[in-house]
Amino acid sequence: MFTFYRDDRLQIDIPVLELFWEDLSLDKQEELLHRWEQIRSTIPDRIIELEKIIMDKQFQLSDEENFENSCYLNSQIAELASIINDLWLWYRKSLLITSR
Rank of each mutant, 00 (worst) to 15 (best):
D63V: 02
Q29Y: 07
L26N: 09
I54R: 09
N85K: 08
F4P: 02
L26Q: 14
F67L: 15
S75P: 01
F59D: 09
L19Y: 11
F20D: 04
L19N: 10
Q38P: 01
W36N: 00
T42E: 13
D23H: 10
L73K: 00
D27N: 11
C71E: 00
D23F: 03
A81H: 00
T3V: 08
D7H: 05
W21M: 09
T42Y: 11
I53A: 08
D13Q: 14
F4W: 03
I77K: 01
R40N: 04
E31P: 13
D13C: 13
R92F: 15
A78I: 02
I97H: 03
D56F: 04
L95K: 04
A81R: 14
L26E: 13
Q11R: 09
L17Q: 05
D7R: 02
E68I: 04
L73Q: 01
Y5A: 15
Q58H: 13
W36Y: 05
L32M: 09
W90C: 01
V16H: 09
S41G: 08
L80F: 04
F2R: 05
L96F: 10
K52M: 10
I97M: 07
E31V: 12
W36H: 02
Y72D: 00
T98V: 06
E37W: 08
H34T: 15
F4A: 04
I77V: 07
T3K: 13
I43K: 01
I12P: 07
Q60R: 15
D13T: 11
D13P: 06
S99W: 07
S62R: 10
I39N: 07
L80N: 04
A78L: 04
M55C: 11
K52T: 08
E64Y: 00
D56T: 12
N66P: 01
N66T: 09
I54M: 10
D7S: 10
F2E: 03
R100W: 06
Q76S: 02
H34W: 06
L61K: 12
L17V: 06
S82Q: 05
E22G: 05
I39M: 13
N74E: 10
L96V: 05
I97C: 08
I39R: 04
